[in-house]
């Protein structure tokens, strides 16, 4: 029973949502799902937050490595709950939107989360470079193609690409590297993306059917006590 009911729920809800697309009176059911999901996610958040606190308090108690930083995390988390749930410093008071400009909560976002976010994001510039150094090597035929494509596009994005091929007359401007770069983006890239997208969506169809039909039931975990 413990397994049958969830399998039935999956089957029932899945089938219903598939057909709802074709039945106008049911057309809003998809939205309802999003609503349910949001609510379930908030409840689940209590589990997540509880876990976060438990893990860091555990580290603290056992004096595990770096336990000091756990204190920082716990303080940060608690502080955000404090200023956010009580809407400290919110110009509109408790009734206003929690992210109203000027509230402590939003200031924390602007001055702490925001720089952290954008710096973490900016690390990509470095990793793009180290990945190109290592990955774009002519190890075999596929890697060579990858390398050439990347190199042509990179060249096309700098004045160098134009300088190298500036001697090509305008009537043959296609062969100038920046134009070739654009052409590759419009033809090869489009074709590859299209094949990938078609493949993905067929994969989703089969995957979804396996889930709905109960062929795939890993997500339910084991048979017993659970």
């Amino acid at each position: 029973m413990k397994r049958q009911i969830p399998l039935f729920i999956t089957f029932f809800v899945g089938t219903l949502l598939i057909f709802s697309v074709f039945i106008p009176p049911m057309e809003t059911w998809g939205e309802n799902f999003t609503l349910f999901f949001d609510i379930i996610a908030v409840f689940a958040f209590f589990l997540g937050a509880g876990n976060l606190v438990r893990v860091h308090v555990g580290k603290l108690k056992k004096r595990k490595a770096d336990w000091g930083f756990s204190i920082v995390t716990l303080i940060g988390f608690g502080f955000m709950l404090f200023v956010g749930l009580l809407k400290i410093g919110n110009p509109g008071g408790i009734a206003a939107d929690v992210t109203a400009p000027g509230s402590w909560f939003q200031e924390m976002f602007n001055y702490v989360i925001n720089p952290l976010q954008s710096t973490m994001y900016a690390l990509l510039a470095f990793f793009v470079a180290s990945a190109s150094y290592r990955a774009f090597r002519a190890k075999n035929r596929e890697a060579t193609i990858l390398l050439i494509a990347a190199f042509v596009i990179l060249l096309g994005r700098t004045p160098l690409g134009m300088l190298l091929t500036a001697w090509i007359p305008d009537s043959l401007s296609f062969f100038q590297i920046p134009n070739m770069a654009v052409w590759i983006m419009n033809s090869f890239n489009l074709a590859g993306q299209r094949a990938i997208l078609i493949g993905i969506s067929l994969g989703v169809v089969a995957m979804s059917l396996r889930l709905i039909l109960g062929v795939e039931r890993t997500y339910l975990g084991g048979d017993d006590n659970g």
Partner: peptide, 22 residues
């Protein structure tokens, strides 16, 4: 996908991710 292809040892491309569990 390009980034995984560049930095990982094996990459399941799109559809292969869904096929993998099966």
């Amino acid at each position: 996908l390009p980034f995984f292809i560049a930095a990982c040892d094996f990459t399941l491309i799109g559809e292969e991710l869904f096929a993998a569990s099966a």
